[in-house]
């Protein structure tokens, strides 16, 4: 399955998913409310570095994360410098990047399956409002299974149109892709019904 998870054995990897979500969100929140000053820029950056070091994810991964955010950094900073003083521009950019990379620790250290389980358990709270956690988990599982199937259908549609010499566009790609996808949805609905989902 497609995933952003990085296998590892550090304590953050082993920590249960639920508390990990809360802990990381707390840090993200704390970073987000820092004022726009040089000092908070330093605190934000140091915070992110500390998080990556103590969780044993390491500086290499932190660097990789920041590189993947380069466009956000460039656009955010470039735009801020025009309207705000340098201090605010640097602090705001650092704060946003620090919040993003700390939040990323969750998926780097937790398998999707474990997060799904934690999510389903968390939804139990809402069951008294008529929400059925099992049904929600089912929709999520069906969606996860369907992404690679549709990706393959898209490749099929593209190849079929190329074979006919058509250029890829709305008429030759989007519509046929949607029709096969919606047909797939109807077949899937039948399969769910046949297997006892009402």
């Amino acid at each position: 399955m497609l995933t952003l998870y990085r296998p590892g054995t550090g304590w953050l990897h082993r920590a249960p998913a639920g508390p990990k979500v809360f802990g990381l969100l707390l840090i993200v929140l704390a970073v987000s409310i820092l004022p726009s000053t040089w000092l908070s820029a330093a605190i934000g950056a140091a915070g992110a570095v500390v998080c990556y070091l103590v969780s044993r994810i390491g500086m290499v991964e932190l660097g990789r994360q920041i590189v993947s955010l380069r466009w956000i950094v460039v656009v955010t900073f470039g735009f801020q410098v025009i309207f705000l003083p340098m201090e605010s521009a640097v602090a705001n950019t650092t704060r946003v990047v620090a919040a993003i990379v700390v939040a990323a620790l969750l998926v780097l250290t937790t398998r999707v399956g474990d997060l799904l389980d934690a999510f389903e358990r968390g939804l139990g709270v809402f069951s008294r409002f008529g929400l059925d956690p099992e049904r929600v988990a089912l929709v999520l599982a069906v969606a996860i299974t369907t992404v690679p199937v549709l990706a393959r259908l898209a490749v099929g549609v593209r190849e079929a149109q190329r074979a006919r010499g058509a250029r890829l566009g709305v008429r030759s790609f989007v519509i046929p892709f949607l029709v096969v996808s919606l047909k797939h949805a109807d077949d899937l609905g039948d399969a769910l019904t046949a297997r006892g989902v009402v």
Binding site: M1, L138, A141, V142, I144, T145, V149, H184, D187, L188, D190, A191, L192, A194, R195
Partner: peptide, 15 residues
Amino acid sequence: VGFVFSNPDAQIIMP
């Protein structure tokens, strides 16, 4: 009653 359809892809529900 059990039901089997034609399209193998559309019958897989879980990962």
